[in-house]
Simulated assay, not measured.
Amino acid sequence: MSNSVGFWKRFLAEVLDSIIIGIPLAVIFGLITGQWEDDNISTFVVFLYTMFVPIFWYGYTVGKRMMGIRIVRVDGKKISIGTMLLRCLVAGIVYGITLGIGFIVSAFMVGLRKDHRAIHDFIAGTYVTSNKP
């Protein structure tokens, strides 16, 4: 795993995705539906974005691309829907079952481990790198 990326670059990529994708989607759905408190639809669309954009864009999301980082599989194969389901959905369930403790542990793993892999990376067999496709 060459050029694995640590906590701050990954964190900033998530912040950029939230600002560039998440907030505009929430505003658009709020304007369309008039329901500003119910963000289920925009949350679902953000989930689909997180799932599918890396599959079709070499492991990048908009935020990751801006930070020069991307998701790759440990075995070198192309990211698939199965990979992203494991990374997003299954990991999300694990984080939910542990009441967020797993998420906090993952943040420390990314910051402290030499390979910078989080729980969701281990579940999906992925890591985040600065290597270009």
Rank of each mutant, 00 (worst) to 15 (best):
R87M: 07
I101E: 14
S80E: 09
V90Y: 11
K78F: 07
R87Y: 07
A91K: 07
A91D: 06
F103H: 13
T83K: 04
S106Y: 13
L99G: 02
V110S: 04
M109G: 00
V110M: 11
K78V: 10
V110Q: 04
M84V: 02
S80M: 06
L99C: 08
V90F: 12
I104A: 11
V110A: 09
L89K: 10
L85F: 13
C88N: 15
V110D: 04
G82Q: 11
V105P: 00
S106Q: 10
K77E: 15
K114L: 07
A91Q: 05
L99T: 08
V90S: 04
G92M: 01
L89G: 15
D75F: 02
L86P: 01
V105M: 04
L85H: 04
I81G: 11
I93T: 13
I97A: 14
C88G: 14
I101V: 15
L86T: 00
G100E: 08
I79Q: 00
S106C: 12
I93D: 03
I104G: 10
V94G: 05
G92S: 01
G111P: 02
I104Y: 05
K114M: 09
I71K: 07
L89F: 15
I81P: 09
G100V: 04
L85G: 10
S80A: 04
I79P: 00
K78R: 13
G96E: 04
R87V: 10
V105E: 10
R87Q: 10
T83N: 08
V105R: 02
I79Y: 00
I93W: 07
V74P: 00
F108Y: 10
I93G: 03
A91I: 10
D115V: 10
R73F: 13
R73A: 11
G92N: 01
G92T: 04
M84T: 05
T98W: 03
L86A: 08
I81Q: 03
I93V: 15
L89M: 14
A107V: 13
T98Y: 03
T83I: 06
R70D: 06
R70V: 01
I93H: 05
K114Y: 07
A107R: 05
D115E: 13
I104Q: 03
R113A: 05
V105L: 06
I79W: 00
V74R: 09
V105C: 05
I104M: 07
V94F: 11
D115F: 07
F108M: 06
G82N: 10
K114Q: 13
M84Y: 08
R70W: 02
V110Y: 04
L99M: 09
T98C: 13
I71P: 12
A107P: 08
R73Q: 15
D115T: 12
A91V: 07
L85P: 05
I79S: 00
D75A: 10
V74D: 07
I71G: 11
K78S: 13
S106K: 12
R113T: 06
G100D: 06
F108R: 02
K78A: 12
I101A: 15
